[in-house]
Amino acid sequence: MDILIGGILLGGTYVLMALGLQLQYGVARIMNLANGEILVAGAFGAFWFYSGFQANPFLALIVIVPLAFILNWGIYRYLLSPLVRRAKSRGQLEVDSILATFGLSFIFVGLMLAVFGGEYFSYGYLERAVIVLEQPYGLNRIAAFCASAALCIALVLWLNHTRSGLALRAVAVNPTAASLVAIKVARTSALAFAIGGAVTASGGALLSMFLTFDASIGVIFTLKALIIVILGGVGEIRGTIVAAFMLGLAETAVASLIDPGLTLAAAYLLFIVILLVRPQGLFGSRS
């Protein structure tokens, strides 16, 4: 039972970072390997606000979200959109964007190392135990989960029930068709990339409430987000949410039943099995 609840709490915060990558990959068609660094930057942001101004991480989001949005919009506009215009096929864009964002991730790691140094960071906000079904859980985990859930619900409602959200999904499904209904595909892609970055950064800020992090940990989160996106199916919001919980549960189960050191290995085992058995993801449709 404690594995179930612990897994759900962890998965709930994974959902956010994975939805961020999903928007960037599914809509803007950029496989962003610097996604994890944006997440870590969000975590540093929350840390900085907490230690510098005693501001709680939720308040920090008010600043982190717009900053991440602007930063990611700039990355797309100046670094990635030349690649998009140049690419003759989706495959070529994928290779180019993977190389470009891989390089970008090292720049971010270097910058964060220079600013914050190489040690591990954590802070104690809401470090109280809450008893759920006779088991103690950190209040910070529960608060992070609730905030993450609220943001996810807002995001999904926006995607499903507004004209601009629908336009984003249209570009994800078929960019040519989108231009035939007067959607500005380039601008919509930039918007999706920027929102994706903001969502990932807020995921980082929430994760930092209960996770110890350092400047170079981003790559692990990039890989986790990647696993979730592939597992759930590219462009599948519902699949992403289910996959994030699956990963959270799998990691928690392996950590408490076998060995905490094997969590990443377990995540990859899950990933490889899915790639072999159902490459389009759990919810993805074969195209």
Partner: peptide, 13 residues
């Protein structure tokens, strides 16, 4: 058409 979207979503688009 937007194959993964519903009829109504296609028309709305």
């Amino acid at each position: 058409i937007f194959a993964d979207l519903t009829v109504l979503e296609n028309l709305k688009l």
